[in-house]
C-alpha cells in the first residue's frame, strides 16, 4: 500500500501524491519514459525513501513495514550493473545469502533451467548476451518464491522466447503473491497483468483492470484508408495508433474525437488505443 507518495530529485517532482492499494495478482505500471515508474518501483522495493507519504505492508507501517517488505521481496532493478565475473549460479548463490535463505543447488539450477539458462549457468555474466544477463537477474528476483516480486523493465533486450519464459514464471507464482512489473508497451503487459496502473508526469492517471481502461476509449477509435499523399497531413492533425501500407494507400488508426475524414469509421478499441488516448501528448510520435 502506497499512501500519498511524493518524490523529487534536485527540485524536480518525479512522483506526485501517488496512492495505490496493491493486492495479489499481477500489476503492470505503464507510462512513457520519465513518468516515474522506476522511482515508484524503487520506493516499493524500499531502496529509495519518498519525500512524503508512507509505505505500508501487511497493515504494518514505518520501519516494521520496511522490514516486512524486505523479508518477502524479490527485486529486479532497472540497472543491470552486476559483477561481470559472477556466473548466473554464483549470482543466485550470493542472493540466497542476502535473502537469508537456504536454497539447494538443484532448486537454483531448476530456476535457471526454467529461464533457459542451464547451459550457461557457469559462464561469467560478462560473457553472456544482454538477454541472458537480464534473465539471470530475473532469476534472482524469483529466488525463494517471494510473495512480492518487483520487475523493473524486465523485458528490455529480451527476445520473444525469453519473454515467454519470464511470463511463465510470472504466471506460476504461488497463490496470494503480488507481482509488479513496469513497461511502456501496453500490448506486452495486457497479456500478463490483471491490474494496470498508468503514470504520466509523476501522476496517477489510471488504476484498474485492462477492460475498464479499454472501455474508456469506446467510441474514440477510428480507422480510415487514405491515399499516400494525405497520410502526412493526417499524422500531424490526429493522434495515430497505427499506420500501415495497404493496397492503394495507407490505413490509419486514430484515437480521439471523430476525425474529419470522409471514410473514417469507428472501431473497437484495443488496450494500446486506450493507453495512447490516456497519454495525450505525453508520447511523442
Amino acid at each position: 500500500m502506497l499512501r500519498g507518495i511524493s518524490k523529487s530529485f534536485d527540485g524536480a517532482p518525479v512522483l506526485r501524491r501517488i496512492t495505490l492499494d496493491l493486492h495479489e495478482g499481477v500489476v503492470a505500471i505503464l507510462g512513457p519514459n520519465g513518468a516515474g515508474k522506476t522511482t515508484l518501483m524503487r520506493i516499493l522495493a524500499t531502496v529509495l525513501a519518498p519525500d512524503e507519504g508512507a509505505l505500508e505492508c501487511n497493515d504494518l507501517q514505518g520501519e516494521a513495514a520496511l522490514a516486512a517488505t524486505r523479508s518477502q521481496v524479490g527485486y529486479l532493478p532497472q540497472s543491470l550493473e552486476l559483477p561481470q565475473h559472477l556466473t548466473p549460479r554464483g549470482l543466485l548463490s550470493y542472493v540466497t545469502s542476502l535473502k537469508r535463505l537456504v536454497v539447494s543447488d538443484e532448486a537454483a539450477m531448476q530456476l535457471l533451467a526454467e529461464l533457459g539458462l542451464e547451459t550457461v549457468a557457469n559462464q561469467p555474466l560478462g560473457q553472456l548476451s544482454d538477454g541472458q544477463r537480464r534473465l539471470a537477474a530475473v532469476a534472482q528476483a524469483f529466488l525463494g518464491r517471494p510473495s512480492l516480486i518487483l520487475l523493473d523493465e524486465f523485458s528490455a533486450g529480451l527476445d520473444v522466447a525469453e519473454r515467454e519464459a519470464v511470463y511463465r514464471l510470472i504466471n506460476a507464482v504461488k497463490p496470494g503473491s503480488l507481482v509488479v512489473v513496469t513497461s511502456n508497451l501496453p500490448a506486452e503487459v495486457g497479456k500478463i497483468a490483471q491490474t494496470l496502473v498508468v503514470l504520466r508526469d509523476g501522476e496517477l492517471r489510471f488504476a484498474g483492470n485492462a477492460a475498464d481502461l479499454v472501455r474508456q476509449a469506446q467510441g474514440m477509435v477510428w480507422e480510415a484508408c487514405l491515399p499516400e499523399n494525405e497520410a502526412n497531413s493526417t499524422m500531424e492533425r490526429y493522434r495515430l495508433s497505427r499506420l500501415r501500407q495497404v493496397n492503394g494507400g495507407v490505413s490509419v488508426r486514430m484515437v480521439g474525437a471523430a476525425p474529419e475524414l470522409a471514410d473514417a469509421r469507428p472501431v473497437e478499441p484495443t488496450l494500446e488505443d486506450a493507453y495512447l488516448l490516456l497519454m495525450g501528448n505525453a508520447l511523442k510520435r
Binding site: 511463465r168 514464471l169 504466471n171 506460476a172 507464482v173 504461488k174
Partner: peptide
C-alpha cells in the same frame, strides 16, 4: 481458462487448485 502450461507450473509449486 488458464492454459495447461501455467497450471502445471503452479502445480509444481504446490498449488492444489
Amino acid at each position: 481458462p488458464l492454459p495447461d502450461e501455467t497450471l502445471f507450473a503452479r502445480l509444481m509449486k504446490g498449488d492444489e487448485e
